[in-house]
Simulated assay, not measured.
Amino acid sequence: MKLHLVLLTFFYSAVSFGQQKTVEVWPGKIPGAIDAGSYKKEIKYDSNGKSPRISKVTDPVMEVYLPPAEKANGTAVVICPGGGYSVLAIDHEGRDIAAWFNSLGIAAFVLQYRLPSDVIMEEKSTGPLQDAQEAMRIVRRNAGKWHIKTDRIGIMGFSAGGHLASTLSTHYNAKVYPVDKKVSARPDFSVLVYPVISMDEKITHKGSRNNLIGKNPDPHLVKEFSNELMVSEDTPKTFMVHSSDDTVVPVENSIRYYLALKDHGVPAELHVYPYGGHGYGTGRSDKTESTWPRALENWLKMNDWL
């Protein structure tokens, strides 16, 4: 209980840093977009008017959260909230995380990425990746303005957002839209929290799989978006969190990705907790899964990103 109170105090003090602005990912034409007219972004709240869930994102944006100048250390993270590729859990897997990073002197960018849909995308499987690649490039292009070092920019994702983060980590060179090759989309590190990794029917999250590549996908798409199969020696260093009792996204997703990273000589750290289930964000109990932010802070220090 004490740990939970400490974390809450930490977050509430960090929230005061606040969001500075919102940046359009595609201020011009969105690649592969279909004009769907009445298809508009929706925000829904729980019965207490909290826990917003965003759906039907047509115009992706990044919410910019910069730490105070005296705390900034040049590191930045693009955050991808989860939600099964159908909604975005924007608070506990996005804005709350940004506030925590700001408290460490790290700039944070919460990405409202397009959720795959045949209604608004010519190829729905690549839509989210297009947004993630361009988000990373936007941060690099604006590194000087935001006091960020171009070799200290990471990607983070929760659940299906973890699938997007691991997709960017393994597909950062994929040609999914015309781009200036001078600006790399490769993250310098990735942080994956109870992530969907694989499209393998045995361990995938079926909702995420169905939304991204369809209910009867081409085997090529299954392989391409099973990111444990796409790891290379150039995949960025990775920190991972999962719980053994996760019945939504089986822990085997993280285990397979970790083993692939290990096999390719990529430094990786995997924390598997016995409890926690799924979707707990920074933690919701006094059990060990709620300690992962402390472990992540230590990992960031070890790699000189703090």
Rank of each mutant, 00 (worst) to 15 (best):
K40E: 15
K40I: 13
K41D: 12
E42P: 00
E42S: 13
I43Y: 03
K44C: 12
Y45N: 02
D46T: 03
D46A: 03
S47D: 14
S47M: 07
S47Y: 07
N48H: 13
N48G: 15
G49K: 09
G49A: 10
G49F: 08
G49L: 11
K50L: 15
K50V: 14
S51T: 12
P52Y: 09
P52K: 06
R53H: 09
R53P: 01
R53A: 14
I54N: 05
S55W: 09
K56D: 11
V57N: 09
D59I: 10
D59N: 15
D59Q: 15
M62G: 09
M62R: 08
E63V: 03
V64P: 03
Y65M: 10
Y65N: 10
L66S: 03
L66T: 02
L66M: 08
P67S: 06
P68M: 09
P68S: 08
A69C: 00
A69Y: 00
E70I: 09
E70Y: 15
K71W: 04
K71A: 12
A72K: 11
A72I: 08
A72L: 07
N73H: 10
G74L: 10
T75N: 05
T75P: 04
T75K: 06
A76K: 04
A76Y: 00
A76I: 02
A76Q: 02
A76P: 05
V77T: 01
V77Y: 00
V78I: 12
I79T: 05
I79G: 04
I79W: 02
I79D: 02
C80A: 13
C80W: 05
P81C: 04
P81D: 03
G82H: 00
G82A: 01
G83A: 05
G83N: 01
G83Q: 02
G84S: 11
G84P: 03
G84A: 11
Y85S: 00
S86C: 07
S86R: 11
S86T: 13
V87Y: 07
L88V: 03
L88N: 02
L88M: 06
L88C: 01
A89Q: 01
I90N: 00
I90M: 08
D91T: 09
D91M: 04
D91P: 04
D91F: 01
E93L: 06
G94L: 06
G94D: 02
G94V: 05
R95K: 15
R95G: 00
R95Q: 12
R95D: 04
D96L: 14
D96V: 13
I97L: 13
A99S: 14
W100A: 13
W100E: 06
N102G: 12
G105P: 07
A107P: 07
A107T: 12
A108N: 09
A108S: 14
F109L: 12
F109S: 07
V110Q: 10
L111C: 13
Y113C: 07
Y113F: 14
R114F: 00
R114Q: 14
R114D: 10
L115S: 05
L115K: 05
L115I: 11
S117A: 14
S117N: 11
D118S: 14
D118A: 11
V119Y: 08
M121V: 00
